[in-house]
Design a binder for these strands. Sequence first.
DNA 1: TGATATCGTACCTGATGAGTGCTATATGAA
DNA 2: TTCATATAGCACTCATCAGGTACGATATCA
Lengths: 165, 165
Amino acid sequence: MFALNKKTGYALIALTHLARNSGEVVSARTVAEECHIPQALLTNVLKDLARAEIVQSHRGAAGGYQLANPPEAVTLDQVITAMEGEVQFVRCVLSGDVSAAEPCDLELACPIRSPASRIHEHFKRFLESVTLAELLADDLKTVPPECLDRVPEIAGQGCTKELSG
Amino acid sequence: MFALNKKTGYALIALTHLARNSGEVVSARTVAEECHIPQALLTNVLKDLARAEIVQSHRGAAGGYQLANPPEAVTLDQVITAMEGEVQFVRCVLSGDVSAAEPCDLELACPIRSPASRIHEHFKRFLESVTLAELLADDLKTVPPECLDRVPEIAGQGCTKELSG
DNA sequence: TGATATCGTACCTGATGAGTGCTATATGAA
DNA sequence: TTCATATAGCACTCATCAGGTACGATATCA
């Protein structure tokens, strides 16, 4: 199944919680309790988000976490990268990079390398276009109705941005 | 890492190979040899694709596989679903379905359920908009230059379809 | 100094991805 | 009829990783 993993899901939930308390420092325990996420696990999730500088951490008594940037500036791509590592789409796409941990066996002969790279770019842009602000906007009325139905003719086209407005 | 698994990658490579031999029946061994994919593994991949009716299988001597539909009609979503199961984006999105194998613990309280569903729909449409034909079109010149640079302002918008033309 | 909270890291366990092997069945040709 | 070829359907192994837990170190505040 092609899906985000649970940690990333928890991260998104925690981030929306922090966004709704913007400005305030909230402890991991509070977020865990209010979002019904196992605390020990959420602790690790928030640590990853802090390392990626998506949230700011404050140690000590009355410490906790807060968003490092406004929700509009936090992209889905950033969150996924923080939790799961660089998005790759097809695993070989980045292997031109010498440092890639997983060089592709087919590197020379691969018949889809070039087109897969292009699709990878589009995929990445899609993830970059989705922001935390859209996860906060829980109002379906903000989605232009014409975007909900014209499928797949307009697939992936022109609807993403309107979601946040 | 948010990525397609290797089997799906092999599936895409095999499908492009079949597409380039459109009409002809090609054996799994031939595809494996010409695409440099382990034969035993490719056999399973092609079986999955046949089960999903993405390719047609022909048993017996001189048997093999051929595309069941023209490349324009084969979407990335179909291939991923055939190889990895239904795309879910966030794992809970489909759990409203009673038959879901993985009901979400947070079902009632989840603060991102509704927006995640919307993003899931966009994500799915993106995958439906990418066709095998685009994997065959290896010519970067078919991509309008303005689509390659305006990032992320136009992210995910309006470029996908042009890729195949 | 003690309570609280994050930081870093290591660990466990079950599921799943990647790959292999075998038997049954279908087909075409000798 | 027989044989070679090729797919169909399982069942299996092995390694990796996701999901989750635990603990000592460190920072902050009262």
